[in-house]
């Protein structure tokens, strides 16, 4: 089993990336609090393709932010 890292640390270590976490720690309010980082990438598609490489609960975290000069209409 790898090192358990908090989501706060993950955001510091992997800036503007998508991060795949194995055996995530989930708070009572269903917030991803941390876990074992097994893959990270700037490319979300790469993270999705890695999902089947690991068994058990997983979480995906994006550590970036929407740029100030960008609006979003979904």
């Amino acid at each position: 089993m790898g090192e358990k890292v908090s989501t706060k640390k993950i955001r510091e270590r992997y800036k503007d990336e998508w991060v795949l976490i194995l055996n995530p720690e989930i708070s009572l309010e269903t917030k991803v609090e941390g876990g074992e980082v097994v893959f990270h990438s700037k490319d979300r598609g790469e993270i999705h393709r890695k999902l089947n490489d690991f068994k058990g609960n997983k979480a995906i975290v994006f550590t970036g932010k929407i740029p100030e000069d960008v609006g979003v209409l979904l």
Binding site: P24, I26, E29, T30, K31, V32, L51, K55, G56, N57, K58, A59, I60, V61, F62, K65, I66, G71, V72
Partner: peptide
């Protein structure tokens, strides 16, 4: 009660999605 970043542009949440066999989940933004 869920805390969200009120300074963010959108209301981001984590959602857990249960697998088809019910044995595990993926949590997503």
């Amino acid at each position: 009660t869920i805390e969200f970043g009120s300074n963010e542009k959108l209301i981001f949440l984590d959602v857990g999605v249960t697998s088809s066999d019910g044995s595990w989940r993926i949590y997503l933004p």
